[in-house]
């Protein structure tokens, strides 16, 4: 399997992005914005369409579209209060509409090649981008770990404690949007929007503290991403779909395990 260089690169990228996705996705899940990955992936498509029609670099515009979209989601989140997820749907719909309208003006061929992300076809340049992104995300995560935890616990208290909540939020948004835009281009939007949420969801089922949940989500995510690369090689499946399939399977397994142990406990007490 590792006889081929492209498989080595795919494996490295699976490990790196596998760690990066849940580190950023966790916060989004806790903020009840789980589908923002999906919304942003569509925004990045809209960005590609705008770039192609306006004759600008589609990759940069798609990154910009992601950042702007996530800031809008953040604003709408404050507006809608307890219905935070509405903002996500608004952005998602707008992005799909823009893409649909503009795709009539851009050449379909060009469009497809920008949408096309496959972990099997990663250039050196893309590999370096992934490595750079991973370093930045890891640094951000560990440097702001305490402050983020504080904000998640209570934004009000964090403010009183002197944490620049807005700035922290903005920095996280920026990194999150950047990761979705780059991730969609490199490994495809299905993988990105799933890996931002599923591993954290699985880890949450364990009902442990924040630290263990974070660690577990990274492990689940890496297992899914790397497993997708390995299994798809031997089964001749599509790697992205295989990774997502594994992530869902892991979630179901933990769910089944939890259900069973609950059942056993009840029997013991009964």
């Amino acid at each position: 399997m590792f006889h081929y260089e492209f498989m080595v690169i795919a494996f490295i990228v699976a490990l790196l992005l596998g760690a990066v996705f849940p580190l950023l996705g966790g916060t989004v899940v806790y903020k009840r914005l789980s589908s923002s990955g999906d919304a942003l992936a569509h925004s990045s498509l809209a960005g590609v369409a705008i770039g192609l029609v306006a004759g600008l670099n589609p990759l940069y515009i798609s990154i910009a579209a992601c950042v702007v979209s996530f800031l809008i989601i953040g604003l709408l989140r404050r507006k809608f209060g307890s219905h935070a997820e509405i903002g996500v749907v608004v952005v998602l719909s707008a992005a799909i509409a823009v893409t649909g309208i503009l795709s009539g003006y851009a050449s379909a061929a060009n469009f497809e090649s920008y949408l096309f992300g496959s972990i099997l076809l990663i250039s050196y340049e893309e590999l370096y981008i992934v490595i750079g992104l991973s370093i930045v995300v890891a640094a951000f995560y560990f440097l702001t770990y305490q402050r983020q935890l504080h904000c998640l616990y209570s934004e009000e208290e964090a403010k009183i404690a002197g944490i620049h909540v807005r700035w922290l939020d903005f920095a996280h948004s920026l990194l999150f949007a950047l990761t979705v835009a780059i991730g969609a281009k490199i490994v495809g939007s299905l993988v990105v929007s799933s890996m931002l949420v599923l591993p954290t969801a699985t880890a949450l089922l364990l009902k442990k503290n924040y630290r263990i949940t974070s660690i577990a989500s990274v492990i689940v995510s890496i297992l899914s991403m790397a497993g997708g690369v390995i299994f798809s090689y031997y089964l001749d499946w599509k790697p992205g779909a295989t990774s997502v399939g594994i992530a869902v399977l892991l979630l179901l397994l933990i769910l089944a395990y939890k259900g069973l142990s609950l059942l056993l406990k009840r029997k013991k007490t009964a």
Partner: peptide, 13 residues
């Protein structure tokens, strides 16, 4: 060519 194979653009050198 002519855009029928969108994956060609993403192939390694």
């Amino acid at each position: 060519g002519l855009g029928m194979e969108s994956w060609v653009d993403s192939l390694q050198e």
